[in-house]
Design a binder for these strands. Structure first.
Lengths: 247, 247
DNA sequence: AATGGTTCTGGTCGTCAAGACTCTTACACG
DNA sequence: CGTGTAAGAGTCTTGACGACCAGAACCATT
């Protein structure tokens, strides 16, 4: 074992990099987990779809840079959620120079309306399934980044309060359940789901109000808001359809 | 919403950064999850303890850089595990320049012997608990990095085959159980643990051999090797001692 | 007003995983 | 040959979870 001699600090010693921050912005579009893509204006990959991103400034933290990119691209100031999930620095991932990018995933609620107000040639919301399966070509290594982001979302649904970021400040249990169903690609029984989140206090708090019944009719559902317990976990676990033991 | 105009490519446009890779190297030291610390030889923070790290080269990937650092610091070529878990770039985290570091966590098995062969003033294995609680002062923001790494280990124990990286190619169920107990700071019943990992095929494969009984005597335990199922998950879940609902 | 359709909401029931616990087996040591 | 120790096997209870059914509350249509 050698001692740590590697961090020499002659400024000529270290190779310069550009550091960028890319943000995978998720939202729910009629029951499908979707991400925001923007069309690139410049080379390289001009005209191609990509996830939003930009250079980090020396005066801001990585989190700040991600927040700034989010605001610049969507006008939204505070995302429901913004988490870092990976860094990408393969040689040649940017054809022009050494770029290391730090990837964030964000969750927004009302993105659909915002995107509808822009030129459809410049921004669109695409179901993750289409990106994962390669139906849409993305610039750089952005397809891999999106894939990793989706993977992270699936995990965090089970271990964090991520799901609440997809719904509004008040929500029905059906809406919340739909988030899990879309993220995990499963079907959950409504009655069992209700029991899981209402059995213990701290997950959802009844507001006493009711939402308007859907277009299809039906009993008007209760409105809830998120409790504090989400800070430390999730009320339900991902079903293991694979009979324990994998394969 | 604006279109993506942020990635201008005039080389004078983007602020230069140094990119480093830091590795939190975990190993088990008599039942305690521990990390490798090395003493810094140069400024800044000369003489202080830190986790190993160094500059990324433009010709290598981030993963390659992490592997290289691991080899340079420990002489070990292939770690049992090497995963990226975070990037850190707060302004001022390095007093001399703009540095963004990408953090990896590694798991090694026989590190104790390697460290014993070096000058104790240059490298040591420290239980994570001492670092988390701030008993050891670390350079840069390395304490935070180690804390995040520990958090990641705890999670990955439940959702990946991380635990098998701590044990040898063949192992007893007690050894494997000890990994979970140390990582989660819980006690697991030996009989129940055995049932969990042997109930379904694919987790552990009996080799037919038996290890020598411990110094304390007792029935000599069976030796197993890891099966393929670990690729996709873990055989046991972290006990929820908090009576569901957190708070 | 009655009927059928839809969704929410509460209840039941069987299955199975998870823990707690006990007992047997196989070694070392004196 | 007993005694101590840890591995390994068995039993039992609890409760979580999923599948399913039934009633309640609303809408739309007749």
């Amino acid at each position: 074992m050698t001692t740590n001699t590697s961090k020499g600090y002659d400024p000529a010693d270290y190779p310069p990099f550009a550091v960028t921050v890319d943000v995978v912005i998720f939202t729910m579009v009629d029951g499908a987990l979707s991400v925001l893509l923007v069309r690139r204006g410049q080379e390289p990959f001009a005209g191609m779809w990509a996830i939003p991103g930009g250079f980090k400034l020396p005066t801001e933290s990585l989190d700040d840079a991600a927040r700034r990119e989010l605001r610049e691209e969507t006008g939204v100031d505070a995302a429901s959620l913004l988490v870092q999930f990976g860094a990408y620095g393969d040689p040649g991932r940017d054809p022009r120079m050494n770029v290391v990018t730090v990837a964030y995933l964000a969750v927004l609620r009302d993105l659909e309306g915002i995107v509808a107000g822009t030129d459809a040639a410049d921004a669109q919301l695409v179901p993750v399934e289409r990106i994962v399966r390669g139906k849409v070509a993305l610039a750089f290594d952005h397809r891999r980044i999106v894939r990793d982001a989706v993977e992270r979302v699936r995990r965090d649904l089970e271990s964090t309060g991520l799901a609440t970021a997809f719904v509004g400040p008040t929500f029905t249990l059906s809406e919340l359940r739909a988030v899990y169903e879309a993220g995990w690609e499963v079907e959950l029984d409504g009655a069992n789901f209700r029991r899981a989140v209402t059995a213990a206090a701290g997950w959802v708090v009844a507001t006493g109000k009711r939402a308007a019944p859907g277009a299809e009719g039906g009993k008007p559902p209760e409105l809830f808001r998120a409790g504090r317990a989400w800070k430390h976990g999730a009320p339900i676990r991902r079903p293991r359809n694979t009979t324990r033991g994998g394969r």
